[in-house]
């Protein structure tokens, strides 16, 4: 169960790990590690780490979670409390619930208080105001188009994509031609050995078309990335962990820090999923991604807020 899933030809292969005691367990479908195992996980991470938070929905106040500011704060505390402090935080969208200035301000204050560099992409809840420019007006500096950009860190090329502006069909995310052209040019000069991390709000792969959980032209984007030995795709939007691996590409969606959503094909609609009293924090959480230099995999550790 430990290493047979590892393909030595897949440099920078991405895994989601659960941890039990000091033993490392690899799981194909997202396990849910307990929060106290973070310390054990840190011992294995010899490279740099970064944290992913998602779907904080600041401003949401319905019964399933009447304190989304508190749970977001708790998630950030969890990140900053790690012994091997992450190099930065990626927020994969839906920072706010209704794009109001107060909600954006709350997000900026909480993220700013971590004193960690934060990289963001918008969710559809972040572009509801100011003529759909509410996100761009705050986070658009230095970005292209609707807010896409790339940067390099620790030898990894990070690409933040925007796929919530022009929803297609049943609501699938859409990157659009200008962004795809930019992406093609952006990665062209990179060597195939450069690890790539792509992050966007709506899953780039089709998770569940009926609810618009996927990106209509996500496959096109991936054609520009197929020559790379390690591609990691981090998304939010669906408020639950799902992952799959295709060739050298690993897809991973993060939990929300605000509220869980139903499981496709089981729940009748993708709204907030009520959970038994006291169990909410088992459904919320963060993801920590490590570049483990010894074996060169990127490792994702999903951590619930409680457990």
């Amino acid at each position: 169960m430990t290493t047979e899933f590892l393909d030595p030809n897949r440099r920078g292969f991405l895994k989601c790990m659960t941890w039990a005691g000091s033993a490392m367990l690899w799981t194909v479908a997202g396990g849910i590690p307990r929060s106290h195992v973070i310390g054990q996980a840190e011992a294995a991470a010899t490279g740099f780490t970064f944290a992913q938070v998602s779907d904080s929905h600041l401003g949401f106040d319905k019964p399933v979670n009447t304190n989304v500011t508190g749970t977001f704060q708790e998630a950030l505390d969890q990140v900053t409390g790690m012994a091997d402090k992450p190099a930065f935080i990626i927020h994969t969208g839906d920072i706010t619930h209704l794009s109001t200035p107060v909600q954006f301000d709350t997000g900026a204050q909480l993220l700013g208080a971590t004193r960690l560099q934060t990289y963001t992409v918008p969710g559809e809840h972040d572009i509801l105001e100011e003529d759909r420019k509410s996100y761009l007006n705050r986070y658009g500096k230095g970005t292209h188009g609707d807010g896409w950009y790339s940067f390099n860190a620790y030898g990894v090329h990070f690409i933040g994509l925007v796929n919530v502006v022009n929803l297609q069909g049943a609501g699938l995310g859409d990157l659009g031609k200008p962004q795809l052209e930019w992406l093609e040019k952006d990665v062209k000069p990179l060597s195939a050995s450069t690890p790539i991390v792509v992050f966007a709000h709506v899953p780039l792969w089709i998770v569940y078309q009926d609810w618009g959980w996927g990106t209509s032209d996500g496959a096109r984007a991936l054609t520009y990335l197929k020559r790379f030995g390690s591609v990691t795709v981090l998304n939010g939007h669906i408020h639950q962990i799902m992952q799959k691996v295709e060739g050298h590409v690993a897809f991973h969606t993060a939990r929300s820090t605000a509220f869980p959503q139903g499981v496709p094909g089981v729940a009748k609609a993708p709204g907030p999923m009520p959970v038994p009293p006291g169990e909410l924090k088992n459904y919320l959480g963060t993801a920590k991604v490590s570049l483990v230099t010894a074996k060169a995999p990127l490792a994702i550790i999903d951590t619930p807020l409680a457990g």
């Binding site: 559809e124 509801l128 929803l167 069909g169 049943a170 609501g171 009926d210 609810w211 618009g212 993708p270």
Partner: peptide, 8 residues
């Protein structure tokens, strides 16, 4: 018509 946030 559709919902702009959930066009399904």
């Amino acid at each position: 018509y559709v919902c702009g946030l959930h066009p399904f």
